[in-house]
């Protein structure tokens, strides 16, 4: 049960954006990709979740447990994506944002319990009813990660999630992310332009 990138390459017109990439990401493993701006890192993640803009052409395959995901619509791939911005929904409280990602089968009490436990884990106990405008950047980042994990993705894509945080916050959030990934055994692709963010030697693009 691993996420496989098989000779994956993106083309913009007749121009390849990067050399073909192949990788097999096991559950709990973090596969890091580094590269300068414009080399196609974020487009690669868009291709993996199935939201590649029409201007691009995809070559190669993305597979999960041996099955190609290319024909599977984005919403059914069960892949989570964390951007550098938290992208929390402004019309809901913290609990509303988290509750939206929880599986529909949970009843009200189970949802409440899951949200409370998640917030305790993130060090944000008592934040359930807070409006997102009242959160700091670090708090938003934690809630955003928690929300993504609540949707029970089988793989996680991190698109420079630490780049907007200051140095101190960045280190603690990075550790929080890596701990949760290890604990929940999620196959993860991390895209960054800072080598310090990479838990292992990154693959350099561009």
């Amino acid at each position: 049960m691993s996420l496989v990138l098989q000779q994956l390459q993106l083309w913009l017109g007749e121009q390849p954006l990067f050399a073909p990439i192949s990788a097999e990401v096991e559950p709990g493993q973090i596969f890091s990709l580094m590269g300068p701006s414009g080399c196609g890192k974020s487009s690669l993640l868009a291709a993996v979740i199935g939201d590649l803009p029409a201007a691009f052409r995809l070559q190669g395959d993305v597979r999960w447990a041996g099955e190609s995901l290319l024909a599977v619509p984005m919403q059914h791939r069960r892949i989570g994506l964390l951007h550098q911005e938290s992208l929390l929904f402004p019309h809901w409280s913290v609990a509303g944002n988290l509750g939206f990602a929880l599986p529909a089968k949970l009843n009200k009490a189970e949802r409440k319990l899951a949200i409370e436990q998640g917030l305790i884990k993130a060090g944000l106990q008592g934040f359930a009813d807070r409006d997102i405008s009242s959160l700091s950047g670090g708090q938003k980042a934690r809630i955003s990660l928690l929300r993504t994990l609540f949707s029970q993705p089988r793989a996680l894509l991190l698109d420079e999630p630490f780049s907007k945080l200051d140095a101190e916050l960045r280190a603690s959030f990075r550790q929080f992310v890596f701990d949760l990934i290890a604990e929940q055994q999620i196959a993860t692709i991390l895209v960054t332009h800072d080598v310090q963010d990479c838990p292992s030697a990154p693959l350099r693009m561009g």
């Binding site: 939201d51 984005m74 919403q75 994506l81 992208l87 929904f89 939206f100 993504t148 949707s151």
Partner: peptide
């Protein structure tokens, strides 16, 4: 991106 997040989180 907000819609994309909603789609990935809800699966619908």
């Amino acid at each position: 991106r907000l819609y994309q997040q909603a789609l990935l989180l809800s699966g619908s």
